[in-house]
Design a protein around this nucleic acid. Sequence first.
DNA 1: CTGAAAGCGCTTACAG
DNA 2: CTGAAAGCGCTTACAG
Lengths: 376, 376
Amino acid sequence: MNKRSTATATIHDVARLAQVSIKTVSRVVNQEPGVREDTREAVQRAVAELNYRPKQSARSLAGARSFLIGLLYYDPSAAFVGGVQQGATLRCREAGYHLVVESLHDDAPDLAEQVDRMVWALRPDGMILTPPLCDNPQVLAALRDSATPCVLISPARDLPDMPSVRMDDTRAAEEITNLLISLGHRRIAFIQGPKNQAASGLRYQGYLRAMKAHRLAVDPEMVYRGDFCFDSGVDAAHHLLSRRQRPTAVFAGNDDMALGVLAAAQRLGQIVPDDLSIAGFDDSAAASLVWPPLTTVRQPMNEMAHEAVQMLTVSRHDDGETGPPHRVLPYELVVRDSTSAPGGKAELGLAPQAAPRPAARAASKAGTKAAVKRAR
Amino acid sequence: MNKRSTATATIHDVARLAQVSIKTVSRVVNQEPGVREDTREAVQRAVAELNYRPKQSARSLAGARSFLIGLLYYDPSAAFVGGVQQGATLRCREAGYHLVVESLHDDAPDLAEQVDRMVWALRPDGMILTPPLCDNPQVLAALRDSATPCVLISPARDLPDMPSVRMDDTRAAEEITNLLISLGHRRIAFIQGPKNQAASGLRYQGYLRAMKAHRLAVDPEMVYRGDFCFDSGVDAAHHLLSRRQRPTAVFAGNDDMALGVLAAAQRLGQIVPDDLSIAGFDDSAAASLVWPPLTTVRQPMNEMAHEAVQMLTVSRHDDGETGPPHRVLPYELVVRDSTSAPGGKAELGLAPQAAPRPAARAASKAGTKAAVKRAR
DNA sequence: CTGAAAGCGCTTACAG
DNA sequence: CTGAAAGCGCTTACAG
């Protein structure tokens, strides 16, 4: 209908058409109160007519906000970052913000300089940090200097001066272990992640907690130190399956290692899950692209990002007394075909799709309760 | 040394300290010519001293550039987008730009509106579009209206008014097929992607071209229509392996389908690659997280993005006569253990890592030549 | 409830 | 080679 003119409309054009001052246009566009209803409508009509959109750079220069949120991440291929980014862009759109991404090498020599460059040039209204950058002292220092509001996603530890969003890794690991125990497994191996990653220890704690709660001994030979990569899962399988007493189930600290165990076990002639149940952690894309598909834990990446953007865009209330929020979001147990009762010959026909099996019972507690889901 | 003051330095502060006008500071910061060397140095000293960084919103408002590049994508989980984004952020950083990302549903009703919102608010200096958005008429129309320079990455077809960057899918598919033929395979099945994706047809053409060049008949029963998802690979395997005459090799139009074939074949008791060689396309993360790791093609995602940013940030030279550039970048054949000579019992020991096998010979032509690489 | 003035921090012509 | 003036398009106090 109203064709957009080549030259883009400014606030003055709108004001002229609506017969008001630019200040009133500004009030309407920013949804400020204190504008008479018919005035507001007239302005809105003019805005629509001219297809007016306030220019971010002008708003940013004149005002206190840039309508930009920054996302700092390290590993671009990680599904985790992809999920966080997805959640962040969607929430940003709803809030009228835009997401600026920056990939930083965790050990780059000029890391602070790179952060500075982004922060001082763009003046984003907030920054979202993913692991391992959310634990990097240089990055955090640069961000503190610039007084940019930040939200840490799954940091190694919560900081007194920065809000964070996370899930309960320990509890999830405990539930996965409980699931294996409830299936009848007693000899359950665990593959740890590398020492320098916070998640490694947390998940190991969850495994220990479940084992102890059921008075199951943890044989040191059944705990293997991996590095979160496929190859270390392969190595772990060779180690574990060459023991006198083999495990009937393996819980790997992440999916990549679980896939390594799966591949190695199958090459060694083991049937999964009949001879060996395998569980992972992350619900990576590959987890459902293998046979049998992997039982694992889905982290609430989208939700964490959503929450982070929310914290950064909604007017900050006083943290005076309470300090910044540290939110814990519910995760999701994803039970697939890589786990079953020990020796169970059930359900592994040659049909393209195995029949669904009743979901495992998983304890649910308020606040961090897990959903149990069955999926390919 | 020089602690950054809380209030951030402006161009006026620098000018005062260097005893010049703000115009001269601007010249130095923007690396314009026509400044005496010692003047330039004095300004640079002041810039360093004050840790001055020009504010993007002021530059954008006053000048013609925003120093923002937009990346539009659809599927956030795709490894392809991850690679493109990685390449784009790195090149942006080098060029002093920042990358703003936006995830758009290809079939959202308000697609044009969403593009408009980004374009008119941010006024990015350029936009990078990935499939399938780079083929979406609504998106392209909105972008044309706004006169935003665009680069299409791997579009279905090149447009006369927009530059593009791509690889040669057909040639890569041909080379993969040639590889299988050179290993001794004659009965080679192909799994197509969905009809509405451009890559499906291109890769099929490459398969046909190689078969024809070697005077191998293409049995219609050996061509299966999939949808680029894991499950359709499973279905394809069931279809292909239940034929009278089974294939000795399967070339799937992408990795996800190849992984489906792999899973199904192994469940049916086939040894890969001895009984069946399998090749994919994409080099997705999962391709190296299965056993045996998948022979596939790596798309030059980083390089395509690099090139795209380059086109958008470097001063546009006259396309007057020649039209916008359509660049074709070299891909990479990744030969792993899922392919071997038919019936070949070689090299599949039980060691954690199979010994490397000499890389397959692959034809290389100038301009789009493929590198041959061996990797896990 | 509404508006006139000032100014955010740069770049763009234009002078000299 | 260098600079004084104007202005980009908004928001922020401040009046009324």
